[in-house]
Design a binder for these strands. Structure first.
Length: 414
DNA sequence: TCTGGGGTCCTAGGACCC
DNA sequence: TCTGGGGTCCTAGGACCC
């Protein structure tokens, strides 16, 4: 049996821990530039407020209903998330951290316990130790724990689906669009074919599912039948890509400002990369004009750090070079960012570099080291594992006119 | 010049998740 | 005036090789 422990209205609950007077009151949390709603309490939901609504459109209504409004504070939510995980680890060691507010747990070591009672124990302990209310769904597969959890959120707090009868009963009335893995497009397609409930989907033939919904859909359907196909991942896999992007909050029209913004993203992404012990081979730089204002312009450039440059530059230099290449005067840019691709472990990469046999490669590596060293000082090459710490120092000390740790303090350009 | 199967690698794009 | 910021997996199609 598996359990899914999911925090209720997570961001709103975090804010409420410090302001208990908001319990029972509507609360919403806003995205980065206070752009839109990204979390809401049940009371806010009852007022018809939902995720995705632009703040400027509902500002007056929020005031009218006395809704508590918060700007997002990810540091706080991350901290609470860790506390919830730490609490659950006290109860069971086999867990997968699925998202900032969800944890899967393997209950196979607890077969002697009544699952319902154990679910309540988890729920009560988390609430007591962290102040965060959670719901618990218990079932044989991940997809079914998702179903159980959704039902638990409607009131009981804990729902156990451990017999074919209970599962059947749960799936009969379960709307297709609420299934984990069925999004907007699939729900539309299935409904058009007369499939409206989880039970109907579960009972479709394998070949049909495979054809209409690919292998992912087939896995999902098997999960609904109680056959686990999506394993618990207790050791997180290393990241395949790292993205750092933001909406600007105002329009960027000058290349200089774009370079400053991109420099900021590049250093943040590189910082995260180093924290995870990774190095990168490609950087994608992208920015776009407003998509809510007619057609939008979304240039992007992928730079391979070996192929496209004569030397291996640091992430910031490569980002700046790409930015200059795709920036177009005359556009009003609204959003931008960078993505690190082709990530691999710094350790492995170090062996790679040491084992370069090809003379041309070795020569270009030497040239790279030389070029970057002249520019930024010894060992600042980010790509060699040995240079990673140096690069970090370089970022701090760099006197580049494009470098700022807080580009958002830049004067508005229009 | 035409014919052909099969394999791998890469990329773009779609769909989904929180 | 003002509309989030992360991620993953899968497929199709093209290039290239034997």
């Amino acid at each position: 049996m598996l359990a899914l422990i999911d925090c209720n209205s997570f961001y709103a609950s975090c804010e409420r821990v410090f302001q208990p007077k908001l319990n029972g009151k509507p609360v919403v949390v806003l995205s980065n530039n206070d752009g839109m709603v990204i979390a809401k309490s049940n009371e806010a939901k009852a007022l018809g407020l939902d995720i995705g609504l632009p703040y400027f459109q509902i500002k007056d209504e929020l005031k009218k209903h006395n809704v508590a409004v918060f700007s997002s504070n990810y540091t706080l939510y991350g901290d609470f998330s860790q506390r919830v995980v730490a609490t659950l680890r006290e109860l069971t060691s086999d867990i997968e951290i699925y998202s900032i507010d969800e944890v899967f747990a393997d209950l196979k070591g607890f077969a002697h316990k009544d699952p319902l009672a154990y679910g309540h124990e988890m729920r009560d302990t988390v609430k007591k130790w962290t102040g965060i209310p959670v719901s618990v769904g218990i079932a044989p597969s991940k997809a079914l724990t998702k179903v159980a959890n959704k039902l638990a959120k409607k009131g009981p707090g804990v729902v156990v689906l451990d017999t074919p009868e209970k599962i059947e009963q749960a799936l009969i009335g379960f709307p297709i669009e609420d299934i984990w893995g069925i999004g907007h497009q699939r729900a539309k397609m299935l409904k058009a074919l007369g499939i409206n409930t989880a039970k109907q989907l579960r009972d479709m033939p394998d070949l049909w599912i495979r054809k209409k919904m690919t292998i992912t859909g087939l896995r999902l359907v098997h999960e609904l039948r109680g056959i686990p196909c999506i394993p618990l991942e207790m050791q997180p896999e290393p990241k395949q890509q790292i993205i750092c992007s933001r909406s600007f909050g105002y329009f960027i029209t000058e290349q200089k400002d774009m370079e400053q913004a991109m420099t900021y993203y590049a250093s943040r992404a590189a910082e995260r990369m180093r924290d995870q012990g990774l190095v990168t081979s490609d950087i994608m730089v992208f920015f776009e004009t407003s998509r809510f204002n007619g057609p939008f312009y979304a240039p992007s450039k992928v730079m391979n750090l070996h192929r496209e440059t004569n030397y291996t530059p640091d992430i910031v230099s490569a980002t700046l070079a790409a930015t200059r290449q795709i920036f177009r005067k005359g556009y009003r840019y609204r959003k931008g960012g960078i993505m690190l691709l082709g990530l691999s472990s710094a350790k492995e990469r170090q062996y790679d570099l040491l084992s370069l046999r090809n003379e041309v490669q070795q020569e270009s590596l030497m040239k790279a080291l030389d070029g970057v060293n002249k520019k930024y000082g010894a060992n600042s090459l980010f790509f060699a594992a040995a240079g990673i710490r140096k690069e970090w120092q370089m970022m701090r000390q760099m006197k580049s006119p494009h470098y700022t740790t807080n580009w958002q303090e830049l004067p508005r350009c229009n």
